[in-house]
Write a protein that binds this DNA or RNA. Structure first.
Length: 203
DNA sequence: CGTTCGATGCACT
DNA sequence: GTGCATCGAACGT
């Protein structure tokens, strides 16, 4: 059983995404068991990217609120979940005061608890999925945790469901690089990951 | 090991 | 009609 603290409070998220993102490295994404999933799942955040409403050409919020990105302009500490390439869900933690359009994309996790349940959700055919393949990418981690559009706007700061918690772990070495998988805003050094961690995407 | 490429739905131009 | 904040299979070296 994982021993963790309370969910990070809304105040933690109510800062620019570029400040919150590196602080999310090392924290735990926790999914409490519920009626449909009897297993607690937890993964340590080892890779993130910041997207900013203020002049960031890569952010979905760059042109103001739309039906898709509405939660990105909502209160901080909520999830912004969207579908990409027609088949993968991506999960973000909304940051900064409501209306700013800031969010931090969760790019990779290191499984800490519930890896069996994650593997079951990651495997379509029943074939085994290696541990390094469970959460080593933004589309993989949402599949591993069963996160989809129904979680858009979910509150990360309360008990039950999904939350992000601090168990005291800190990275020995953290690296900052430019963001990947985008065609605009490629110069901003807004990707952070744990140096040497085997669960970081595209290693 | 490496790189290329198809899948697949939808928001936005 | 175009272009994705991706993944994994199918190649080539």
């Amino acid at each position: 059983m994982v021993r963790v603290g309370d969910p990070l409070p809304q105040a933690f998220y109510e800062r620019p995404a570029t400040e919150v993102a590196p602080d999310l490295i090392g924290k735990l994404l926790v999914q409490d068991p519920d009626s449909t999933s009897g297993t607690l799942c937890a993964g340590r955040i080892v890779e993130v990217e910041a997207y900013c409403g203020d002049g960031d050409p890569a952010a979905h919020s760059r042109s103001g609120p739309t039906a898709r990105n509405a939660s990105m302009f909502g209160p901080p500490g909520r999830l912004y979940v969207y579908l990409i390439y027609g088949m993968h869900w991506c999960a973000n933690a909304v940051c900064a005061p409501a209306g700013a359009g800031d969010a931090v994309l969760l790019r990779a996790l290191e499984p800490v608890h519930g890896a069996g349940a994650m593997a079951a959700r990651r495997s379509r055919t029943g074939a085994a999925v290696g541990e390094r393949n469970l959460c080593s990418g933004p589309g993989k981690l949402t599949q591993a945790f069963g996160i989809d559009g129904a979680h858009d706007g979910a509150d990360l700061t309360t008990d039950g469901g999904l939350s992000i918690r601090d168990d005291g772990w800190t990275a020995a070495d953290m690296v900052s690089t430019t963001r990947i998988g985008i065609s605009r805003g490629t110069d901003a050094p807004w990707r952070w990951y744990v140096a040497g961690n085997t669960h970081v995407s595209r290693r």
